[in-house]
């Protein structure tokens, strides 16, 4: 390229600078929005993995279930948005606890292969039930508040995105408080560090497993409630989101809570920027290519121990 051409191209770049900047900001913001969702799901994976040492495939359906319960409590029960959200999240947590109690605990097997396949089986059953109850049609959920975009630094942001940021922050704050200030949370951390030693000092493993499923269910449900107004609601909407949440958990270092948050946000950013500048048709592929790359280069993840 000749020098003049180069200068000319720089010139147009400078003129476009403002737009380039807002575009970029737009991508960053939308990346952080989806990233928060991935972070919530990734945290759910980590909680169960830390206490039981298994990959919990039901997490995927907790996300769908969150959206479905939100739909029911908004339209069938006619609740306002915030109580409906609380009800939906609580309901998913309850379902998760029931599943752990009647679906996983009776197995009493220490073989991880058996337990992981059990979660796969329970996930298939749950998806079948969701199909039976809510049908296979696509449904739309209204956002939590108005859908008029807000302008931030020249980029337009949906109020739903602000809800997502806010409630993700809140969830992280509550989790931090729970794991550092309550005795149940401290017990769960003890089990994560050393299950045998925790059992020796008398921490009941059943209660810990039940709590970890409740937390995983609540996090997955919250992610589902928050994200389905942006996507649509379908019986398998959680599958892809859940898989990406898992990719985020590995990206950050599987089992590490700060890692899950960082991995989620990072994955969201990479995905949105690559969709913006490369191609949006293969946007979903990016997450898994990134996952494979991370597993090759740094299998412990960004913050793994």
């Amino acid at each position: 390229m000749s020098r003049q051409l180069w200068l000319a191209s720089q010139d147009t770049k400078l003129q476009d600078g403002f737009f380039v900047h807002t575009d970029f900001l737009q991508f960053i913001l939308s990346g952080l929005t989806t990233g928060s969702i991935y972070a919530l799901i990734a945290l759910g994976f980590c909680v169960v993995s830390n206490t039981m040492g298994i990959v919990n495939f039901i997490q995927v359906d907790f996300v769908t279930l969150g959206g479905m319960f939100m739909f029911t409590s908004l339209f069938t029960l006619g609740l306002p948005a915030l109580p409906a959200l609380v009800l939906a999240v609580a309901a998913v947590a309850l379902v998760a606890m029931v599943l752990e109690r009647i679906g996983l605990r009776p197995a009493r097997s220490a073989n991880h292969l058996v337990l992981i396949f059990l979660t796969v089986g329970l996930s298939i059953i749950l998806r079948g039930l969701i199909k039976l109850v809510w049908g296979t049609n696509r449904m739309a959920l209204p956002p939590l508040s108005s859908d008029v975009p807000v302008q931030i630094l020249g980029a337009s942001v949906l109020p739903q995105a602000l809800w997502i940021f806010g409630l993700t922050m809140l969830a992280i704050a509550v989790l931090t408080w729970f794991f550092h200030r309550t005795s149940l949370g401290l017990c769960m951390r003890a089990v994560a560090v050393n299950p045998t030693a925790a059992a020796v000092v008398g921490i009941a493993s059943g209660r810990i497993r039940l709590t970890s499923y409740a937390i995983a269910g609540a996090l997955g449900g919250l992610a589902g409630v928050l994200v389905t107004p942006i996507t649509t609601l379908n019986y398998d909407v959680g599958v892809l989101l859940g898989l990406k949440g898992f990719a985020a958990a590995i990206l950050g270092g599987f089992g590490s809570f700060p890692g899950a948050i960082l991995g989620g946000l990072g994955l969201g950013l990479v995905e949105s920027v690559s969709a913006g500048y490369l191609s949006s048709a293969y946007k979903d592929v990016v997450a898994f290519v990134l996952l494979l790359l991370v597993l090759c280069v740094r299998p412990k993840g960004l913050l793994g121990r």
Partner: peptide, 28 residues
């Protein structure tokens, strides 16, 4: 080679992800 080097069940997700990628490509 890279994934089976790790202990733990990373391969489950790696293969699931691969399945998703290939399925998307077959459709797109």
């Amino acid at each position: 080679i890279p994934v089976l080097r790790l202990s733990g069940h990373y391969l489950a997700m790696a293969t699931l992800g691969l399945n998703f990628v290939v399925y998307t490509i077959l459709i797109q």
